[in-house]
Design a protein around this nucleic acid. Structure first.
Lengths: 340, 340
DNA sequence: TTGAAAGCGCTAACAG
DNA sequence: CTGTTAGCGCTTTCAA
């Protein structure tokens, strides 16, 4: 890529002023004569000048780029947030750099290091592990602006945007119990992941509140992809006394479960009732439609962006934590269990 | 963000050498004494040194970042490619900057300018318009490495990775015709978008080959979102002599069509047969499952990345164009039209 | 084999 | 109001 090479120097020369003056005119700061300013701006236009953001960054120590590290950009939840973040940051002249941790702590660590050395201005991060987080702590301690989304990381002092995972999961399971279920399976991701912990807690708390004993064999663990979820669901339901209901902790898993149950010839909700955490487009056109615990996804990205922007602008307040409520959307995937 | 501030200078000082030597040792080039090199590397480790990539970029004129400009990051097709690109580029020490054009030419132009001034090394681009592309032409002429994906842009000399849109669409419509359909509707996006043109051409060619006259009123235009597609589908099917079949040009539209048809009480395939371009996860668990023209999506990202990497490495060959074949996956959404 | 020095493009003290 | 100058952190001649 041949740098186009119209530099400030060229503009200054064309306008017959010094680089300093040209810079002042272009960035409108300090004193510049009206005439001069005009001349400079015209020269810049004529030459097609664009400031070299790398040079500016070297000087200021900051590249107008924000790093976004979701667990998986293919998950519609994170994709939606990516979109919203990009819109917000673009308004402020920042670009969004996306680097997926793929739920791998080591990769997250490296990515963070790499972005650090790039002098990106801040981070929007969905930490892969709630506890294995020395790297995040360090980053925060060094003063890097960080906003955590979807998940928290222990002891990190920074803003975060979450949803009420425990409450949402509890309510979902409550709903299954209210429909007469006692053998309720849970399909979740690894407990390293914060939301998995909270949603598991909600599941436990609901069962406990209803005096249902926890059966560990009813808990399936899977990666958050459709494929992995299919396998895990099959394992969960390939037993004699299979569960009458299933609660899945995210939309990819819900989709996997759907596929798996169908492949096993189990129909919803006659054979198995299903509730999923996180709504998804196609939930309404399966037959039956899927009952879900929806998250206010449209609010997460913009809020996180705003929080980070505040920090970038130097706002100094105690770390803020916003936890959005979730909302049960009752559709048709839950019914009373059949007597057997 | 307080720059951590371990610079090459610090390392050099700690190792008692000059910055030049330290740089040589760290980047292993030129002559450095074994002893010295070791000392430098140890010092760097001890201090936790990481090269400042911005400074390197200022010097080299290139930031190890690649820009990815899809039409919409929320479209699973582009999200999947984003993921694959990121993986490939990470292997080569490059980060991926994602900027969505939102199918807006003006925004695409600005984004490109902005990334240019950032000195990103190259671009993976799904151009919003096949013809309104002065900005892309200019970029290419200036020698910026560009790889076009999914769509081409007229007269731009650069590598591209496409699928056989015309052939795929034609085959899809052929299939509908073979099943006895004559009134086949098309739901597509704006003709500014390259794939829309090609898929429209395929639709036309198939009809023509079968001696079916083109009925413009059977062609619906919509933005590529589920919501817009719902509206457009309703318009298409709210007529007396409604079509017996529908061909949709991407997965988001297919989903919208599904939702719309159901809301109108039309069942698939009894009332309307449906074929969609681009496969999607849930196509197999609707009832009936949806017949689609699948694209080899797993191949697009890696190939595009490789092509760009070749260019970044200075490879000088004529622009390469790869056009992947598509594949009809017959499921259950097509049947013979009812007699009326 | 190593060091000194220049310079990438920009901004901001500081002087005038 | 404008110019001079230094320097951000790095790489790379060139000379020693």
């Amino acid at each position: 890529m041949t740098r186009k090479g119209v530099t400030l120097k060229d503009v200054a020369a064309a306008a017959n002023v010094s680089r300093a003056t040209a810079a002042r005119a272009l960035n409108s700061y300090g004193y510049v004569g009206d005439q001069t300013a005009l001349r400079v701006i015209e020269a810049a236009d004529a030459l097609g000048y664009r400031a070299n953001r790398v040079a500016q960054a070297l000087r200021s120590g900051q590249l107008p780029i924000v790093g976004y590290l979701p667990g998986d950009i293919q998950n519609p939840f994170f994709a939606r947030i990516a979109h919203d973040l990009e819109v917000e940051f673009r308004k402020q002249g920042h670009n969004l750099l996306i680097a997926s941790s793929e739920e791998n702590v080591e990769q997250e660590r490296e990515l963070l290091e790499s972005l650090r050395s790039l002098s990106v201005r801040g981070f929007i991060l969905a930490p892969t592990s709630a506890t294995d987080n020395q790297h995040i702590l360090k980053l925060a301690r060094e003063g890097a602006p960080i906003v955590l989304i979807d998940r928290v990381s222990e002891n990190v002092r920074c803003d975060s945007v979450l949803v009420d995972n425990e409450g949402g999961a509890r309510e979902a399971v409550d709903y299954l119990v209210a429909n007469g279920h006692r053998r309720i399976a849970l399909l979740r991701d690894e407990s390293r992941i914060f939301t998995a912990q909270e949603r598991l807690a909600g599941y436990r708390n609901s069962l406990q509140a209803h005096g249902i004993e926890l059966d560990e064999t009813l808990i399936g663990v899977s990666r958050s992809t459709v494929e992995h979820a299919i396998e895990a669901t099959i394992r969960l339901f390939s037993r004699r006394d299979r569960p009458t209901a299933l609660f899945t902790v995210d939309s990819l898993m819900t989709q996997g479960a759907l596929l798996a149950l169908r492949s096993m010839g189990l129909s919803i909700p006659q054979d198995v009732s299903l509730v999923g955490f996180d709504d998804f487009d196609l939930a309404t056109f399966t037959d039956p439609q899927i009952t879900v615990m929806a998250q206010p996804i449209a609010e997460i990205g913009p809020l996180a962006a705003q929080m980070l922007l505040d920090r970038l602008a130097g706002k100094k307040v105690a770390p803020r934590l916003t936890r959005f409520p979730t909302r049960l959307i009752v559709r048709g995937s839950v019914s009373h269990p059949k007597k057997r």
